[in-house]
């Protein structure tokens, strides 16, 4: 599904990713943890194609293609979805309009028929219901005035509607109450399938109780310095990052 080799990326001349290697197979869930500022969001943004981040070295192959050669929207059409750490507000653009345009843009790109307004509404409603969202929200401007939790839920709604092949969740669990956390976990678990993969960036082991990962990686200072199974998350929860930092200082 995704093969990242020796990926280096910088922003405004500062190198942030310093040689990332990561293999994600179809159906797998990878959790990425790591201290603030270690480069987790940078990695997510580079994968989604944000221009500010300049890839200076390395390669990313996605479904057999060079991901780095693709435009942002092409990546989306190919099934890459990023649930943002900080979803932006777009005043005056209603949720309904936005969802409709996004869904149809992807359908067009994939050679599918656009949904009729009736089908569209039915489809969107089925998902808002699943996510326990108020339908009134469809009339509001995209993310404008949404609470932190509502914004995250909205990201999950979009994921459910766009049915990506590779979903990257950047701290979707941060700032959520326990019910919302379950909603996030449920929406991921509902989509889990042998041909769909997830990269879940999180600071909390708690989420991983609900979304059980196949692998846990620790990102530190632009590199993946430790990888393991789900028990690594428990270890991190218990001991923090200091021991990894020390190990790394000795090693590096």
């Amino acid at each position: 599904m995704l093969s990242i080799k020796n990926l280096h990326a910088s922003v405004e001349g500062n190198e942030i990713l310093k040689g990332i290697n990561l293999e994600v197979n179809p159906g797998e869930v990878h959790a990425i943890m790591g201290p603030n500022g270690s480069g987790k969001s940078t990695l997510a943004n580079v994968l989604a194609g944000r221009e500010e981040y300049e890839v200076t070295e390395g390669s990313v192959i996605y479904k057999g293609e060079d991901l780095l050669e693709m435009d942002v929207d092409e990546r989306a059409h190919a099934g890459v979805f990023l649930a943002f750490q900080y979803p932006v507000e777009i005043p005056g653009v209603s949720m309904a309009t936005f969802l409709k345009e996004a869904i149809n843009a992807n359908r067009r790109a994939r050679g599918q028929q656009e949904l009729s307004p009736v089908e569209m509404l039915k489809f969107i409603r089925s998902k808002t219901k699943l996510l326990g969202m108020d339908e009134q929200m469809l009339k509001r401007s995209l993310n404008e005035g949404f609470s932190g939790g509502e914004k995250k839920r909205n990201e999950m709604l979009q994921m459910a509607l766009l049915e990506p092949s590779l979903a990257i969740l950047d701290e979707t669990d941060s700032g959520l109450d326990i019910d919302a956390l379950k909603v996030v976990a449920d929406s991921v678990n509902a989509l889990r399938s042998p041909d769909r993969s997830f990269i879940v960036v999180t600071h909390y082991q708690r989420l991983l109780n609900y979304i059980v990962p196949d692998f846990v990686h620790v990102l530190f200072n632009g590199r993946i310095v430790k990888s393991g199974g789900k028990e690594l998350a428990l270890q991190l929860e218990e001991k923090g990052y200091d021991w990894i930092k020390e190990e790394n200082a000795v090693a590096g």
Binding site: A48, D71, A76, L82, F84, I90, A102, A105, N106, L162
Partner: peptide, 8 residues
Amino acid sequence: FYLQQRGL
């Protein structure tokens, strides 16, 4: 970026 990430 947000909108393009969603396929626009």
